[in-house]
């Protein structure tokens, strides 16, 4: 597997929407969901995000694989938050006391993260990286940041391959990681070399771009025009977000 853009090709409505519209919707959605606290509203958010995922008609096994990765991180929160957050005790095992507030906080974070990640996969994952980069430029994000993002994602696999080759090389020379100074030094060398090689590659890629007339602006063949459909979709998703905020305000009084 090289650069992973597994959901970027498809023929669903979300694939056809303009990346700028999807990007705006994704930003509004993510920022708003990050600020919501009510569990019912967050659950509603998850349902909306699930509808988006269904509408995007993505490859289910790959989608589940990706969601699993996200939720592994969330699982760590469930390991620590329930007993490390103060509040009303619901269960006690020896020195560990599980609190109601800890459980609610974990649930809240789970719902929030999933609502955001699901929506972002449905909205941004259905565009190619280069189109998202163009959309960011259209939203006046500085060109340097856009290029950094673009090339980070583009070359992350090359750097990973480089790491794989170096890791294999040290393994072939009977290296076994232990809690020793030698191990730390070996890993430090490996990371250092990876940085140096990454830097060298960045130089070469830049030179290759300069040789082809690159002047700091990323130009692509795809010059879409915002259509009514795109504006309507962005408005719909933004409207949905506003409804969630209103619900939150109503439920919290």
């Amino acid at each position: 597997m090289a650069l992973a853009e597994p959901f970027s090709t498809g023929n669903s409505l979300l694939h056809r929407l303009d990346p700028r519209a999807k990007l705006v919707a994704a930003i509004v959605w993510s920022v708003t969901l990050a600020a919501l606290n009510d569990l019912r509203v967050l659950l509603l958010g998850v349902i909306c995000a699930a509808v988006l995922l269904v509408a995007a008609r993505l490859n289910l096994p790959r989608l589940l694989q990706r969601l699993l990765v996200v939720n592994i991180f969330i699982a760590f929160l469930w390991l620590f938050l329930p007993w490390s957050t103060g509040g009303e005790a619901v269960a006690t095992w020896g020195p560990i006391t599980i609190t109601r507030e800890g459980l609610l906080l974990s649930l809240q974070l789970t719902l929030r993260c999933n609502a955001i990640v699901w929506a972002c996969i449905a909205l941004l994952g259905t565009s190619r990286l280069v189109d998202v980069a163009q959309a960011l430029r259209a939203l006046r994000v500085p060109q340097k940041l856009v290029l950094i993002l673009f090339f980070c994602v583009r070359y992350i696999q090359s750097i990973h391959d480089e790491y794989g080759r170096m890791a294999a090389a040290i393994k072939l020379r009977a290296f076994k990681p232990r809690t020793t100074f030698h191990t730390y030094r070996t890993y430090a060398n490996l990371v250092g070399l990876l940085l140096v090689r990454g830097h060298d590659r960045a130089d070469r890629v830049h030179e290759a771009m300069v040789c082809r007339g690159f002047d700091g602006r990323l130009r692509t063949l795809d010059h879409r025009r915002l259509q009514k459909r795109d504006i309507a979709a962005a408005a719909l998703l933004t409207g949905l977000t506003i409804i969630l905020v209103v619900f939150e305000c109503l439920t919290t009084g």
Partner: peptide, 29 residues
């Protein structure tokens, strides 16, 4: 503009998602 350069490592020269976009990069610039 007048000298085309083929790099030693093609991976350095191909940074766009598709072949079409990679080839189009120069003319667009």
């Amino acid at each position: 503009r007048r000298i085309g350069f083929l790099f030693q490592d093609s991976e350095d020269q191909l940074f766009c998602p598709t072949v079409k976009e990679d080839v189009a990069f120069g003319p667009l610039n």
